[in-house]
Amino acid sequence: MSAVAAFVDLLAGRRDPAGLAPRDWDGVIGVARSEAMLATLAHRLDGAALPHAVAALFADQRAAAEVAQRQALWEAEMARRALAPVGIEFVLLKGAAYAAAAMACAAGRQIGDLDILVLAADIRRAENALLKAGWEWVKSDPYDDHYYRAHMHELPPMIHSGRDRMIDVHHTILPKTHRITPDALALVSDAVTSGDGFAVLQPTDMTVHCAAHMLADGDLQGGLRNLWDFHLMTRDFAAADAGFWGQLDGRADLHGLQAAVHRAARLSRDLYGAVLPGGWDRQDPGDAWFRRRLLARDDWGRVTNPLLEQVFYIRSHWLRMPPAMLAKHLWTKWRKR
């Protein structure tokens, strides 16, 4: 039995954890750790009949994730206190947003950096306000700094000197040089307020961003986690609003991200058993490559197909910038090695 298949089956609810042999758990836990999803699995299997050692480890993970989320939301509050006095409102993105909105995918989800979205017009003032409030630059490399400012969708990463936590300040959700240009103004102006009082993207935009982050921007590192977010949020948004899938289609089209959103939906069906409405429930031969990339882990948590990983890495750069610019960028990066 492949460990990554067992892991995905357990999340999807297709496999009874009681049916796993004691030693099968090594691989499942190894894969879950390498995907940064051990606490997510621990939540998914909360209350299931598990070997004692696994139950104890999962309880540790749930408790640790709760602390980590509280710390992540505190960091969001710190950003609010730095930016509110200068009149800058921001929208929380990704993990912190899911936690602030108490979404199902937030249960046990690891939250890395604080990701926030501000209007492009506010970005310089946001930067100054954060620098005054104790954040500082992480990268000192002038090329990287220039590259971020000229071509990326976010400021160069900053870290808070006292709390040692990173913040990524975005002004849109894809690099400026990307073939696709989402409507950043619509993202910010249609944001909604979460239960915690933070602004988060409205449901269709949040879903589009999740798909964009997974399939249009990155190289599918952490893809299983992003896909799990996508699966749970679409399931719950559709349950709350019967017209959700139709609205999602329209919104994805507005941002130019229909292909990514549809692919994410199909992959969530293939891996996690999502039920899709008509018009979404199709087959695409290209999906097989994505499935293979997402499942390329052995029972020691290692990537099993480095060549495929490399192909997706190159693809992510190919999407991010035009060929001539890509060549120049890779040349500069290579000379700096």
């Binding site: 030693r23 758990w25 090594d26 836990i29 190894g30 070997p51 480890l57 020691w300 290692r302």
Partner: peptide
């Protein structure tokens, strides 16, 4: 206890 699942993996 070779049947006990591992808490930590080292490579």
């Amino acid at each position: 206890d070779d049947a006990r699942p591992a808490d930590a993996t080292v490579r």
